[in-house]
């Protein structure tokens, strides 16, 4: 079996969100970058587990990003995976990114492609579905459990108010979230091994951008909390009914 995991780079979850250039660019100064948590904790770790179960599995990683994203894909390789691709591009349109991923995926011929549920900066939740459509693969989003047996995937996915259990033929794209696997920490051996793993860099193919970010803004600041004395919680209830009108 051949697996591809799509890895994206995001600001650390505690990064300060600010913008420059007339609010058209994210202010990257002082920002720590991490592997998008869904890609790392769920997609990548589950793929590593599948390879541990069946060592004949080939596991590739891919990211679309400029050379700044190289430490992130190296870190992903330190967790596991045989080799990685980086498509050298700074475009952010989801269709453009999906087109780059699809081009490499087509050439390599994967049975299973894993993405995160969403990137925590763009919050698009769309690249996995786009990739599946370009490749004409099945697509199951928001998976919380994944087993592969006899060329069939058994997947639990989130539905409103619960879970649905399904089977699908391969090849398939699956977007992963909490439940899939437990986060791991890269060990020294992995970090050393990653240094010698192949990381192939390629130029992007021509592809269209269907959207373009024009400007960012921050939500209006909260007016500040109204504190109610612990001795009179019934006042809170009164305010929620009469002032906020929410109960």
């Amino acid at each position: 079996m051949k697996i591809l995991v799509c890895i994206s780079r995001t600001p650390d979850t505690t990064a300060k969100i600010a913008f420059t250039d007339n609010n058209t660019k994210f202010a990257t100064e002082g920002v720590q970058w991490i592997i998008n948590p869904y890609d790392e904790w769920y997609a990548l770790v589950r793929a590593i587990e599948l390879k541990e179960k069946d060592p004949s599995t080939v596991l590739h990683l891919i990211t679309v990003g400029t050379s700044d994203t190289e430490p992130i894909i190296r870190k992903a390789l330190a967790l596991g995976g045989d080799e990685a691709f980086r498509v050298n591009s700074d475009q952010e349109d989801p269709f453009y990114i999906a087109s780059q991923l699809a081009y490499i995926a087509k050439n390599e011929g994967y049975d299973l492609i894993l993405t995160g549920k969403e990137t925590i900066d763009h919050n698009g939740s769309s690249i996995g579905g786009m990739l599946a459509e370009i490749l004409d693969f099945n697509y199951v989003s928001l998976a919380v459990k994944l087993e592969i047996e006899a060329l069939k995937a058994t997947i639990n996915r989130e539905v409103e108010g619960g879970e649905e259990i399904l089977t699908s033929s391969l090849p398939i794209v699956v977007s992963c979230q909490k439940g899939m696997a437990e986060a791991r920490i890269p060990n020294m051996r992995g970090i050393m091994a990653a240094r010698t793993k192949s990381l192939k860099v390629s130029d992007p193919i021509d592809a269209e951008c269907l959207t373009k970010t024009s400007v960012f803004s921050l939500p209006p600041a909260k007016a500040g909390v109204r504190l109610i004395p612990a001795e009179t919680p019934e006042l809170l209830v009164k305010l929620l009914r009469e002032e906020a009108k929410v109960i």
Partner: peptide
């Protein structure tokens, strides 16, 4: 944050 996205 919010982002204003242009659909092209």
């Amino acid at each position: 944050a919010f982002s204003d996205i242009n659909i092209l």
